[in-house]
Amino acid sequence: MTSTPAIETVGLTKRFGDFTAVQDVSLQIGPGEIFGFLGPNGAGKSTTIRCLLDLIRPSEGECRIAGLDSRKDAVEIRRHLGFLPSDLALYPNLSGRETLEFLANLRGGVDWAWVDSLADRFDADLGKKVGELSSGNRQKVGLIQAFMNRPEVVILDEPITGLDPLVQLEFHTLMREHVAEGSTVFLSSHTLSEVERVADRVGFIRRGHLIAVERMSELLDKALRRVTLEFSAPMPAAAFEGIEGVHSVEADGATVTAQYEGSMGPLLRAATAHDVLSLESSSVDLDEIFLEFYRDEVTEAEGGDAPEPAAASSAAERA
């Protein structure tokens, strides 16, 4: 397997007038990797992708795909690339198959046995006109065209929009098969739960700044848990602050909610010094884990106080 990065950005910056959409983003993504690119809507994900594809030009920095310069070698890159945009637009009067034939001809032909196998796997109806298809079925056509030339690099922007859970599972299987052959998938999403099932590494972008890049396995190793304790009398949060492994504590009358990592023992010992009526434990979402461990970086990127994890998660979903 080649050591040349499948996707690389060096100091990528894109400004629109006085607004900086992407600021000094440097990434290296290797062959045979599923890379999740995560951030709320408006964070700079699609701008980064458009620069990679030479759909817009960077204000500063460089972009490369399969070792080729995104600007100088834009035509050659298309021979190695599959792409699904977030705002997929197809000709409404063409059927799904006619759409794929049109795109295949632009590519110089494809293996139609492979295309038909993809259509079977996604249960895609290619006989209907695209304009008559539901959003989920149009998305299936988009996924097929992204993979139909067996590209070295696939860039997917919010790919599971409209897909039912069974098709999502088949799509995840296809991605794993694709990278097992040495190809690369760049998966952009605003939902961490979408990529945590399949990504090898994840990059977090907020307000145009690349906050962190983590191996998914290492991020999961940082997994926090949340415990909600109900006491017989009001309990101050201060009673649990500074306990080993405890990251945050909130108190609301007799209810105390704490996030912790590692053993629950120290927290339980402090709790059982009081009259505990009930205890409930659950996992913390990975986006909350991210915000907890990278609070300072988020604060710097957003130019103010870092949001509380739960509030930030909700805001990201609304954005």
Rank of each mutant, 00 (worst) to 15 (best):
V75G: 01
T184D: 00
L81W: 09
V110Q: 06
M1G: 15
N105H: 08
S248P: 03
T299F: 03
A310Y: 15
E33D: 04
R78D: 13
D120P: 00
K128T: 10
D305L: 13
S314V: 15
D120E: 13
V213D: 01
M148P: 10
V276N: 03
L156A: 00
E302R: 12
G303H: 06
V115S: 06
V110G: 06
A319R: 15
D123F: 00
R269Y: 07
V167N: 14
L174V: 03
W114P: 01
M235E: 11
V179P: 06
D125K: 11
A311W: 09
E308K: 00
L267W: 02
E8W: 00
V276E: 04
I7H: 09
E230A: 05
P31C: 08
F83M: 07
L220I: 07
F171A: 09
V154A: 04
G96R: 05
P159H: 04
E181A: 13
E292F: 12
F19D: 07
D54A: 14
V25S: 03
G142Y: 05
S313V: 14
R79A: 12
L94H: 12
I289S: 02
I65S: 04
D305M: 10
F171M: 11
Y260L: 01
I243D: 07
F240G: 01
R176H: 14
V153A: 07
P5H: 01
V298G: 06
L38Q: 10
A315T: 15
T9R: 02
E230P: 00
L174F: 01
A43D: 07
F171G: 09
A199K: 04
N105R: 13
V75F: 14
F231V: 04
L174T: 02
D111H: 12
I49T: 00
E152I: 00
A316Q: 09
F290Q: 05
L229A: 01
G208Q: 06
A66N: 10
L88S: 13
S313D: 13
D296I: 00
F147A: 08
D125F: 03
H274Q: 12
M175P: 01
G245Y: 11
L53P: 07
S189F: 00
R138H: 12
N41C: 03
M148C: 12
G245W: 10
M175N: 00
E76W: 02
P309Y: 11
L219H: 06
L81K: 10
E101L: 04
L166F: 08
S70M: 06
G61W: 01
G109H: 03
V284N: 03
I7P: 11
V298W: 09
L38C: 10
